[in-house]
Design a protein around this nucleic acid. Structure first.
Lengths: 157, 157
DNA sequence: CTCGACCTTGGAGTCGGCTTCAAGTCAAGC
DNA sequence: GCTTGACTTGAAGCCGACTCCAAGGTCGAG
């Protein structure tokens, strides 16, 4: 199949497929007089990339995972997986909090966000609510610190 | 408290707080001869923004939620919440799939990604595995279509 | 043999989310 | 009064993830 067909079936633009190839997320496609030809397996790959990315992995991280698959798995895969697990747990946790709050908000008629319990729904039980203060030791702050950010994707389209 | 102190406690840069104020995510701070002064409540706000953002809401969406709180809740809040719920459900679902795969990967010694079941762990049970083909009707494709992307944040720092 | 649809490449542009920089202001201690 | 460190602003820069564009190549139907 040519790139346009793949793109159509995957629901992405051809430019994205070329871009992924360029940055090493997809292996260089087989060419017929310059034009890329694919078999259906690239659709799986694209699906995996999509899900992983939406789950908060960067293209670079995904590339490591996927690279590992094209040749004997590098010893970096289990390491990466172990490093990434707590992050994704945190993501799921946050998303769950926000979800539950959104659920409330979808039905409520409070006058302020705080009446809706946004903060409490969304943040870890803070040691002393009201006394949201803390010694400014770097990294240790509100709800285990806003710091240490390094999450998730940006999606347009 | 001055901006630097808030930033320290929240574990972010002052520039981020100014930026959030600029784009309307934080209300314009009270000034003392030009310099911003805050009370601790802004820490809650920052925490909420952080969690929501990491849960996949854009700053713009968060602004709508948070705007609504500063004045009587706009009628857009429940709407936004209802629109956002399925998205966040999808996010949680994807993250959960990836999580379970990562868990496997952390312990495995397979030779290829596919042996690790990346695709199967990460994608919806596809109608006919192997027959990953479909009529290219826009939006309807692999794993309910990669299309319609519009998720989650980008975080550096 | 031409036409139109589709493909190629490299490079520039866009967008969200920030940070950095330059040039200047403020306040507290010596 | 002067220095020092934290603050101010606006503008520019950066990064990830893409898309778009121009100038051309490929190919199958008519």
């Amino acid at each position: 199949m040519r790139i346009g067909e793949i793109a159509g079936q995957a629901g992405v633009r051809s430019s994205l497929i070329r871009y992924y190839e360029r940055i090493g997320l997809l292996p260089a496609a087989f060419r017929v007089s310059g034009q890329r030809r694919y078999d259906a397996s690239v659709l799986r790959r694209l699906a995996v990339i999509d899900v992983a990315q939406r789950a908060g992995l960067s293209l670079d991280e995904i590339r490591h995972l996927v690279d590992a698959g094209s040749e004997p798995i590098s010893d970096r895969l289990p390491d990466l997986a172990r490093r990434k697990l707590p992050e994704i747990d945190a993501l799921i946790d946050r998303a769950t909090r926000v979800r539950s709050w959104l659920e409330t908000a979808a039905a409520c008629d409070c006058q302020t966000i705080d009446e809706c319990g946004l903060f409490d729904a969304v943040c870890q039980p803070v040691p002393e609510a009201g006394t949201v203060k803390r010694s400014a030791h770097p990294g240790g702050s509100l709800t285990q610190g806003l710091r240490g950010r390094s999450q998730a994707p940006t999606r347009r389209t």
